[in-house]
Structure formats: C-alpha cells, structure tokens
C-alpha cells in the first residue's frame, strides 16, 4: 500500500518534467524538422531521427534530480527507505516504458509529415541508425528500437539516480574528491599511466570492450540490464542508511 503511495508521488514528480520535455521535443523535432524536410530538396540519403539519444540524456538528468526531494518528502510522511526504493524501481520501469512509446509516436508523426510533404528525407530510429542503415526505416524496426530504448532508459536512469544518492551521502570533502577526482582520474591519471607503463593496453581494452558492447543489439541490451542491476543495487546500499541532513 505504501509502495503504491510512494510510486504515485514519484510518478507525479516525473510527470511534469516528461510533459515539458515531450512538448519541447515535439515542437523541435516534428515542427522544425518536419518543416525543414518540407522545403529541403537534398539527396535521397538524408535521414532524420535518433530522438532516442536526446531522450536518454533527458532521462539521465531526470535520474540525477530524483532523489533528494522525494527522499525528504517520504521521510516526512513515514515512508521507509526500502519502500521509497521499491517505489523508485516501479517509477523507473514505468518511465522507461512511457518514453519509448512517446518517441515511437514522434517517429510516426514525423514519418506522416515526411510522407505528406513528399520529402526524400528518411526517418530513422536509433536502432536503425546503429545497426541497419536506411533498411531500418521500415515500420517493423520500430519494435526492436522500442526494446532497445527501454533497457537503455533503465540503465541511464539507474546511473543518474545512483550518482545523486552518492553525492547526497558524501560530505563536502567527499563531494569535491569524487566530483573532481573521478574526471581527473579518468581523463588525466589513467591515460598517463597507460602511456607510461602499459603501452596503451588499458585504452585498447576499453575500446575493445565498448566495441563489443555496441557490436550487436543483444550485447547492448544485456550490458544495459547489467548496468541497471548494478546501479540499482548500489543505490539501495547507499539509500538504506541515508539520513535527513540539517539544511
């Protein structure tokens, strides 16, 4: 019962942001992009789409903004951290289902505009752009695109949520160390160590790993699920001892 109450509240918190995002994307993507396509007489190879990347960035940011207010409101209303976390999981799954549906609608509307305008521009979803080329413009490819976006959404939201909990738990010094230390480690220290001691072996391994993940949709889907599980577990571990701090 409390999980449901927490879920309702967390969904309401996301609702406004999603609606504003969808409205902006609708205007940008459909009206502007559709309008340009209407007047554009370019080559037949021109494509538009991959709105999914924008959505994933939005969901990551939404994840980053989802903890503090909801946590304090929950604690004020006698909701345990465990219940808040369960509500968050349900919210994450719901949003990860809603956003691909919204993107699917945008693709369909965009395709409608392109078709009616007789434009030569092709609407391509992320899945098509990544794995199939213009072949993926066929409607049937919107289905794997939906599933791919769903799992990617789960992963980015879980990552954003974990980062915000981590920063909530850290003290001032910890925030500075993690906030500045991690980028310095990844962008300066590790590359220097790699060049000096490992003959670029670390970079090559990382590149191979990324290529492997992106190589096939199945690899990407499994990796996304694993990332989601790891970040959710880590989030719970950090959340279960979170306390209300003096403001």
């Amino acid at each position: 019962m409390n999980i449901l109450a927490s879920y309702r509240q967390q969904m309401a918190d996301q609702k406004r942001a999603i609606l504003i995002y969808w409205l902006i994307i609708f205007i940008l993507f459909v009206v502007i992009d559709g309008g340009i396509s209407f007047f554009y007489n370019g080559s037949e190879n021109s494509t538009t789409g991959s709105i999914e990347m924008v959505t994933l960035i939005f969901l990551f940011v939404a994840g980053l903004c989802s903890f503090k207010e909801n946590f304090l409101l929950s604690v004020q209303n006698g909701i345990s951290r465990k219940t808040l976390f369960c509500g968050r999981l349900l919210t994450t799954v719901s949003v990860a289902l809603i956003m691909p549906v919204a993107d699917l609608l945008i693709h369909l509307i965009n395709r409608g505009i392109l078709f009616l305008s007789g434009s030569t521009v092709t609407d391509l979803p992320l899945y098509g752009a990544a794995y199939c080329g213009t072949e993926a413009a066929r409607l049937i490819y919107l289905i794997p695109n939906f599933f791919m976006e769903f799992v990617l959404s789960l992963a980015v939201m879980a990552a954003g949520y974990f980062i915000t909990i981590l920063f909530y738990r850290l003290n001032k010094l910890g925030k500075i160390l993690v906030g500045a230390g991690v980028p310095v480690l990844l962008n300066i220290i590790l590359p220097l160590l790699d060049i000096r001691f490992f003959h670029m072996a670390m970079t090559k391994t990382a590149a191979r790993l990324m290529l492997f993940v992106a190589q096939r949709p199945s690899h990407l889907i499994i990796t996304s699920i694993l990332v989601c599980v790891v970040f959710c577990a880590a989030s719970f571990l950090f959340m279960r001892r979170a306390v209300v701090k003096r403001q």
């Binding site: 409390n2 207010e69 304090l72 409101l73 604690v75 004020q76 006698g78 909701i79 345990s80 951290r81 465990k82 219940t83 279960r240 209300v244 003096r246 403001q247």
Partner: peptide, 20 residues
C-alpha cells in the same frame, strides 16, 4: 526503524521543512 506500519502511526512536525 524502517517500518512503514509503525511510522504510519506517528507524524513529526519539525523545525526543518522537508516539503519541496
């Protein structure tokens, strides 16, 4: 502690505002 049923029986109004 971490018990929704127990916590549903009490309400703490504190000096600190926890509402958004």
């Amino acid at each position: 502690i971490e018990n929704d049923r127990a916590q549903s029986l009490l309400y703490l109004m504190s000096e600190q505002t926890l509402y958004p």
